[in-house]
Design a protein around this nucleic acid. Structure first.
Lengths: 259, 259
DNA sequence: TAATAAATGTCGTTT
DNA sequence: AAACGACGTTTATTA
């Protein structure tokens, strides 16, 4: 039975063919691709208008929608997941309306010509893993504190502090309290400001000695002065190195497991 | 001649058919859509691994690439414009490699089954207009200063200040220097901090009286205290209202033009 | 190229 | 729902 097909596509279809396929695809929560000539209107947090041209429209089963032009990484218009799809056909135009209750946002694509459409039941349960994130850097330093400096001993993995969290709290070889802020990219003045916020909250008893260390692959030029002014320190560590360290950690864990 | 066709697509093609079409599409800088079962690897600023599943791959003529799963607004993997595409076929697998010189980033999608592909020459010269941005809010207040408060007079549209720019600088009905920072979303503590940075630079002669006004649709709760502490003010204005004001401005301009 | 701030930012987490 | 910070943030603007 045709309705049971996992996919349906057509090149240069009529508006009616596309309309019927899209309508069915919305109802069945399929992955929908439409390429054609359209204009686009958006009203919500901002407003936008896109004059006619040939673009790709994507409607996903989770209620997200994207309109992509032939250039750029980012979609020219979109709606986040949870939006509602509706389509209609009138006056030789195919309308796809995407409504999002939050922020009362409406996205409308109006096609006068369809070049291709595809309606597919996509099965995707693959796991996605991202490595060398800030969290990985934190884990790596906790696993191998000498990455920061010899003699460093972490106290607790993450201690909640008023504005957010200190990434790592510990004690140096002299026993001095040491706070560590981690950035996976070049640290900026903003990073230093963030570190100061933490210091201000922690360092209420001013007579207590404390070290503040900013960890990042690089330190921006402007940030150097500020860091020096505040008497903070910088330690260059790349996320890639941390990723390597974690790899060792995991292989060791496995070794231990099979020992 | 088949090579001159503006588009070519196929449902459930063989890997060979897809490979040939993609290769030609890359060479001719076409808009390429591939749906199929694949795994994905990324190495660059971070590293990532995506286990097999059915996804959509987009290769654009400007060298940007996107891999979309059946859910989420954002692509699971991508490369920005300017990347280089390459494809190969071996051992029953179709590889699409996207290389970006900056950051030495590599994205690889390896397909073992293609469900659909489409290679199209997309023509899109339509103009995109976005309204109700922060810049629009600035323009609207400059055009109708009473939006901020009665008697306010802007001095210069944008006066360069050390860290970035003051959005609006002016004088209130009493002649007091007034600096305005605009946010198109709910203003946060960060917004207030930004305002303070500007104040610190401008207000070098401390005896000069100065007013700091934060303009935004809303003020976050935590930001209220900080604002009060610093003696700054808040004025609620929505980007949508500003957009309306600008619409009037433009219609007036047109009226004047035809008068 | 570096720095800075905006974005319909999105996304996750915690309160 | 609000607040907060990370993101392979991206993108634009300016020095």
């Amino acid at each position: 039975m045709e309705d049971q097909a996992r996919q349906r596509a057509k090149e240069v279809p009529s508006l009616e063919e596309a309309f019927n396929a899209i309508k069915e695809g919305i109802y069945k929560r399929r992955f929908i691709i439409v390429v054609g000539n359209c204009r686009v209107d958006y009203r919500g947090r901002a407003n936008s208008k896109l004059d006619p041209g040939e673009r790709l429209l994507i409607l996903k089963p989770d209620g997200s929608a994207l309109i992509h032009r032939p250039r750029d990484y980012s979609p020219v218009n979109w709606q986040p997941p949870g939006s509602l799809f509706r389509t209609s056909l009138s006056n030789g135009e195919l309308l796809v309306r995407v409504y999002r209750r939050k922020d009362n946002e409406v996205l409308e694509a109006i096609f006068d010509r369809i070049m291709m459409f595809s309606v597919i039941d996509l099965k995707d349960a693959g796991e996605f893993s991202l490595y060398a994130t800030e969290k990985d850097m934190q884990e790596a330093i906790l696993f191998q504190p000498s990455l920061l400096e010899e003699g460093f001993r972490p106290i607790s993995p993450e201690r909640p502090v008023e504005p957010g969290f200190i990434d790592i709290m510990g004690v140096d070889r002299e026993g001095v309290l040491t706070l560590v802020e981690i950035k996976r990219r070049r640290a900026t003045k903003e990073s230093v400001a963030q570190l100061k916020k933490y210091a201000d909250v922690i360092n209420l008893d001013k007579n207590r000695k404390i070290r503040m260390i900013l960890v990042a692959p690089e330190l921006a030029k402007g940030a150097q002065e500020l860091l020096a002014t505040l008497g903070y320190e910088f330690k260059a560590i790349t996320p890639q190195l941390c990723s390597e360290v974690l790899k060792q950690k995991n292989s060791k864990t496995i070794t231990h497991f099979f020992k």
